[in-house]
């Protein structure tokens, strides 16, 4: 049972936190939606379509954040054979994939009226699409082996290898000419978004992050239970 000592410790810390992050997610997203849809003004160039940004940018941020968490957790699982690291990585993958799909879909819905195209193969869009394939590849690989540890190891290595894509996504708009605009929030000379639009954006980012943490606790708990079920069944077969 000592193999699950760490996951049990995780549950002792994470379970009491769950209602707090869940409420933080509900309140932040609620406030962000209210400000973004009702209070924020239309943009001087994009008009009302700027409101798509309040979903698109937080989703893009989460697509990167979930992958970074997945890669770090996978590294812990590979280096220190930390069973919890693998469970957190496995629990993060579907969440990150969902946020990546939201990012791509909302970006496309903004691009059509503003750029005049649903999709172009520029460096930013292509690298985000690759991020989506990395998530899908990870999820496929995790369950592809009969031997669970082999699947875990292969998927963790893929997660680590794919991490080179993260700086490429972030800096693609600076390194190369792209159709996508450069960064507006995280930049050296400060945000280039007016505060009336920055607040709903930040609230949505906080809300999405809290949503991810809440889902992460739920999914990790589920993975821990699944691992215990496997162990009991294996014990029944061998005993």
């Amino acid at each position: 049972m000592h193999r699950f000592a760490n996951p049990n410790q995780f549950l002792r810390i994470a379970n009491p936190l769950l209602p707090w992050v869940a409420w933080l997610a509900v309140l932040s997203i609620g406030a962000g939606l209210y400000l973004g849809l009702f209070q924020a003004p239309p943009d001087y160039q994009q008009g009302e379509t700027v409101r798509i940004m309040y979903v698109h940018v937080p989703a893009a941020w989460m697509a990167l954040f979930c992958y970074a968490s997945m890669a770090i957790a996978s590294a812990m699982a590979l280096i220190w054979r930390h069973p919890l690291g693998f469970l957190i990585a496995k629990a993060s993958a579907p969440v990150g994939a969902c946020f990546t799909v939201i990012c791509l879909a909302t970006g496309s819905l903004w691009g059509k009226p503003m750029w005049g195209t649903w999709w172009e193969w520029d460096a930013r869009m292509t690298s985000v699409l690759i991020l989506f394939f990395l998530y899908v590849g990870y999820m496929a690989l995790v369950d592809a082996f009969d031997d669970a540890t082999r699947g875990q190891r292969a998927a963790s290595i893929l997660a680590l290898v794919g991490a080179v894509n993260l700086p490429i996504i972030k800096f693609s708009v600076e390194w190369w000419n792209t159709l996508h605009q450069p960064a507006s929030v995280i930049r050296l000379d400060g945000p280039t978004i007016h505060s009336s639009m920055l607040w709903p954006l930040l609230l949505m980012i906080i809300g999405f992050t809290a949503f991810y943490l809440a889902i992460l606790v739920v999914r990790t708990r589920s993975e821990i239970a699944a691992a215990k079920i496997r162990n009991i069944r294996l014990g029944q077969v061998h005993g």
Binding site: P42, G47, E48, T49, R51, I52, V55, H56, A59, P94, V95, C98, V101, I102, A105, T106, L109, W110, K112, P113, F211, I215, V218, R219, S222
Partner: peptide, 26 residues
Amino acid sequence: MGGYAPYIWPAYLIAAGILVALLGLS
């Protein structure tokens, strides 16, 4: 939405749909 309703509302609905489905399945 200033004529941009066919782009803005689907964006919000897709996001809401995916996140609610993810929560429900989890």
